[in-house]
Nucleic acid binder design. Structure first.
Length: 969
RNA sequence: GCCCGGGUGGUGGAAAGGCAGACACGGCCGCCUUAAAAGCGGCUGCCGCAAGGCGUGCGGGUUCGAAUCCCGCCUCGGGCACCA
């Protein structure tokens, strides 16, 4: 019998004659829980009042209270349903929210569903079921499962990203982004109309210098489109033939495969929608500073944005015998302009656009054999190397332990700081996509360049003096510049340390027109279109010119058409030459549309790509604030109230505003959180929001993990049938091996919240999950330990209810002084713990109080203790607490009853027990009045340890008031 | 390789320079029961009959006092990885 089944059997026996009829069993819990869940729903107990609009409620007990916005990362409702790990964070935020409500805050704690995405679509492809049908069934199942846990969400604010009423506003935001441009001078987005006005007024030159009036309508539109925050680009993208779609960089693994499905991904030039997130690189990076987020997540975002500061430097290459007149200018990016004198060669990415122009007909005089490979001409060498580089997958590059390869192009360039002629190579260790796709190589101060220089026998000149004991290769540390002056050019960096040296070099470059200080980012623009059915359609049509036109707001929503075939065309996963074909392009009736966009009815072609799954989750935190608003995504008054910046009292950095507590897994550290921040900032710039960041405080919850067991043949066996004997594990008689990790169907170790509710009740499940450990730490699931939480709740129940008669049995006589003191210590401690999300230690304190109250009970529990106990239990076990509160004679829900407050007078002890240490070991304890003078404490302590001191003269006696006494002999 | 986190009883964990192991699981003993289960009570870091000794990954240091602070290692987990 499985553990769960066994527990259930025990519960079933609860109906038998031996168990008291009014015991708090799983069956009893089930009855109580259903009753209170219905009551909460009927009374709208979890409804949260808005300051403005239809959800305003001036009579609500928290209508005028300070606000608190607590948010969970919403789930993607999969077909498999929830396992016990999923609701960990939801229960945590629910306990926190319920506590804060009782503590006086107007708490917003909503829940919704991220429902567009691949699984429903793939299921649709396999079965022909419309993704909406699958999705809505899954959402319903999730709602039922979550409701059963007693989570106090305001259900009026719940939606799915697939709801037409929701994605209408996703499209609306897309239009805002499309109709905006980034003004570098202001560092902020502005409406696109203001850009047109700048061009028209001549305040901004056109790209080719012609007057705005001289451009044709189509030319003007093209210029404007190039500035939009959402734009169409022909840039190289990640094409995944196996999935039939393109992917964002973030969706491609380091070894060049799709994160979903693990298919090969190829770089191809395709026409795709992009979002200009790079424009926000600085703000996304700098604004991390003010956020209360885990350092780890901030580090991951910083890493991802990858800002590096340095300089662009131009190297000129005289045309050799390539037949070109004049000079070729090669721009490189470097973070170390101080090392320019050590640049002994240059490297271009094999794909670099200038390679062909630079490559001469023949090898220059005296070209070393190693530089030529086996090739007769530079042209051949370059062509061969390019084939080699293109043919290597990311995986192969990775595998080859960074061995440096490359060939000489036959061309030389002039180092601007000293006029030296340095050879130009192509090598695949230089990436086309970063910086300018070209570098100046400084082997003495760069490991990679050193390795290449060694491989191809290139000169190495140290330009930073390493410490005397340095015996490595490239030296990347600080030190004085050496070998860094030129009488010819007048630049002299010798003796300067890195920072000054860099600054001087940049100033010199700028004065000579040979370069300029520059900043580059690793962050790329966000690929925003997918060749899928189950996503938001773009509110975009194309006219005969083939340029995109934004639909007016009045034409929203653009609804997904019903079609029969939901899959994009997929290809052999290695067919790099294939091209995407979207499912919507097959819906001809939908795609071809006649609209009046101002010049009378005309035929247009709809955009047939859909938005990526991230779109819906980029702004859901905003819709909760004003879910019924049908004129805008979120109304100003409600946004201002829930997310507006706080007064910082003249702090250095103005508060960003945003969600007060956002809880979710660390797996969203980069993608979701970066995209959501980006959209939020665009909407902020355009004046739609008062907060400049969506999530002021982020908290990563840990995971619940589980053991899985494999038999001799390596197959997983049902985990709850495995028993432990003498430190080994057996499935029946067969020994099995144990591994630890995720909970999953294929691992046969899934435990669901439904099973737990069935076997123990939702309150027990909640208390168990909260008491297992700190919310941010991952821990193993252990079904057999759940009973501890159940026993605790049973003890609380017995303090109020007679198990045999069902009568309420509390006594109104005062409790004893020691219990009263404990009660107030627990109240103070539980408040502190809950304020800091230390839910596990809060539960431990409540157990201690319960155990004490049980031990000192005389007949029923003592009302003086039991009532505050029930109130403090309410965040964790809300159904049981409501039930007991009612049985204690109160009417209505306790959801807005004040959380107990400790009496400060009782927190101050009348007497204190001091441990007395002798040489660091505790040897005695003394009890003295709390206000005893230090000398009194000292002499009492010395008397108590007289035996250990044994006549020796104490060298030192330390009295730490209120803590302990330490004697040193 | 670089950057973050961790390492405490059989297990999950507690202890924010001051009594290491709160609370819970498990285990052992007892009560109740014809019996079992459930429930309740006691004990439970390790060594030792005991007195006592030893104990927070390892080695050093600071301090009257270190799980906690510092230095050097070991180890597990996560992130990044030719980003110029």
């Amino acid at each position: 019998m499985s553990e769960v089944a066994a527990a259930r059997a025990g519960v079933d026996a609860g109906g038998g004659a031996d168990i008291p009829p009014h015991r708090y069993t799983a069956a009893m819990a089930g009855t109580i829980e259903a009753r209170w869940q219905n009551s909460w729903a009927e009374q709208g107990t979890a409804h949260t009042p808005n300051p403005d609009g239809p959800l305003a409620d001036p009579d609500h007990p928290r209508a005028d209270a300070p606000k608190l916005y607590v948010l969970d990362m919403f789930p993607y409702p999969s077909g498999a349903g929830l396992h016990v790990g999923h609701p960990l964070g939801y229960i945590g935020t629910d306990c926190y929210s319920r506590y804060q409500r009782m503590a006086g805050f107007n708490v917003l704690h909503p829940m919704s569903f991220d429902a567009f995405g691949l699984p429903a679509e793939q299921y649709a492809v396999q079965t022909g079921t419309h993704p909406r049908v699958t999705t809505e069934a899954n959402v319903e199942r999730y709602r039922t499962q979550l409701r059963r846990l007693g989570l106090a969400h305001d259900e009026r604010r719940s939606f799915a990203t697939t709801d037409v009423d929701y994605y209408r506003w996703t499209q609306w935001i897309f239009l805002r982004v499309f109709n905006a441009w980034f003004d570098d001078r202001r560092g902020a987005a502005r409406p696109i109309a203001e850009l047109s006005a700048e061009f028209a007024g001549g305040r901004r030159p056109t790209p080719d210098g012609r007057a705005w009036a001289d451009l044709s309508d189509v030319e003007r539109r093209a210029v404007i489109n190039d500035h939009r925050l959402a734009y169409i680009s022909e840039a190289p993208v990640n094409w995944c033939p196996g999935l039939g779609t393109v992917l964002a960089n973030e969706e491609v693994t380091a070894d060049g495969r799709s994160e979903r499905g693990n298919f090969p991904v190829f770089k191809r030039n395709l026409r795709q929608w992009m979002m200009r997130i790079t424009a926000y690189g600085d703000r996304l990076l700098d604004d991390l500073e003010g956020l209360d987020w885990p350092e780890q997540v901030k580090a991951m975002q910083r890493n991802w944005i990858g800002r590096s500061t340095g300089a662009h430097v131009d190297f000129l290459s005289s045309a050799t015998d390539s037949g070109l007149a004049g000079e070729v200018r090669i721009s490189v990016f470097t973070t170390r302009p101080d090392t320019l004198f050590g640049a002994t060669y240059m490297v271009l990415a094999p794909e670099h656009a200038l390679v062909e122009r630079l490559t001469p007909q023949a090898w220059p005089e005296g070209t070393r054999p190693a530089w030529r490979g086996e090739h007769a001409t530079p042209g051949e060498a370059v062509a061969a190397y390019r084939r080699f580089a293109a043919g290597r997958t990311e995986t192969e590059r990775q595998a080859e332990t960074r061995e440096k390869t490359g060939v000489f192009t036959g061309a030389y360039a002039t180092n601007p700081v000293n006029g030296a002629q340095i050879p130009i190579f192509i090598a695949d260790y230089v990436l086309a996509g970063y910086g300018t796709g070209a570098i100046m190589a400084v082997p003495a101060e760069d490991e990679r360049d050193w390795a290449f220089a060694e491989a191809l026998d290139l000169p190495i000149i140290r330009t930073v003096q390493p410490p005397a004991d340095f015996d490595g290769t490239a030296y990347t540390g600080d030190g004085p510049s050496i070998n860094s002056s030129s009488s010819e050019t007048g630049l002299d960096l010798d003796g300067l340390h890195i920072a000054e040296s860099k600054a001087k070099a940049i100033t010199w470059l700028e004065s000579r027109g040979a370069g300029a200080g520059a900043v580059t980012y690793r962050l790329r623009d966000w690929l925003f279109s997918r060749q899928r059915y189950w996503g938001e359609p773009f509110p975009i049509v194309y006219d005969d010119a083939g340029l995109p036109i934004a639909l007016p707001e009045t034409m929203l929503p653009v609804e997904l058409p019903d079609i029969d075939d939901f899959s994009p065309r997929t290809f052999d996963s290695d067919d790099a030459g294939s091209s995407p074909e979207t499912p919507l392009s097959r819906a001809k009736d939908w795609m071809e549309v006649t609209l009046d966009l101002g010049d009378g009815p005309r035929t247009y072609r709809r955009e047939t790509n859909t938005m990526p799954q991230w779109a819906g989750s980029c702004w859901y935190e905003l819709r909760y604030l004003d879910p019924t608003n049908d004129t805008t995504a979120v109304g100003a008054a409600n946004e201002q109230y829930w997310m507006g910046p706080r007064e910082t009292g003249g702090g250095v950095r103005p508060d960003s505003g945003g969600v007060d507590l956002y809880v979710g897994g660390v797996e969203h550290a980069v993608l979701h959180l970066l995209y959501a921040r980006f959209w939020h900032k665009v909407l902020y710039d355009l004046g739609h929001l008062s907060s400049s960041e969506p999530f002021r405080r982020l908290y990563n919850q840990g995971y619940i993990q589980a053991y899985a067991y494999k038999d001799q043949r390596g197959r997983y066996v049902q985990a709850d049938e495995v028993v432990e004997r003498d430190g080994r594990w057996f499935h029946g008689d067969a020994e099995v091996t144990r591994e630890y990790g995720k909970m999953g169907k294929s691992l046969r170790n899934v435990v669901t919240p439904d099973e737990m509710c069935e076997a123990y009740g939702a309150d027990t499940f909640r208390v168990y999950e909260m008491s297992m450990g700190p919310l941010d730490v991952s821990r193993p699931w252990e079904t057999r330990a759940v009973v501890g939480a159940q026993r605790f709740l049973q003890r609380v129940w017995r303090l109020v209810v007679n198990e045999h008669t069902g009568a309420t049995e509390v006594v109104d006589t005062p409790t004893d002084a020691a219990t009263r003191k404990l009660l107030h210590q627990v109240i103070a401690g539980v408040r502190e713990d809950l304020d800091d999300l230390r839910l596990n230690t809060a539960v431990a304190k409540l157990i201690e109080l319960t155990n004490r109250a049980t031990a000192v009970r005389d007949g029923g529990g003592c009302r003086e203790v039991v009532e505050p106990l029930v109130l403090m239990l309410a965040p964790f076990a809300p159904h049981l607490a409501e039930e007991l509160w009612q049985r204690l004679g109160h009417r209505g829900s306790l959801a807005y009853v004040d959380f107990p407050v400790a009496d400060p007078a009782l927190l101050v002890a009348a007497s204190i027990t001091y441990p007395v240490q002798v040489n660091g070991k505790v040897r005695a304890r003394i009890e003295v009045p709390a206000d005893a003078a230090e000398s009194t404490v000292r002499s009492a302590a010395l008397a108590a340890v007289a035996a250990q001191v044994a006549g020796r003269e104490p060298r030192k006696v330390i009295v730490v008031p209120g803590r302990l006494v330490s004697v040193v002999v």
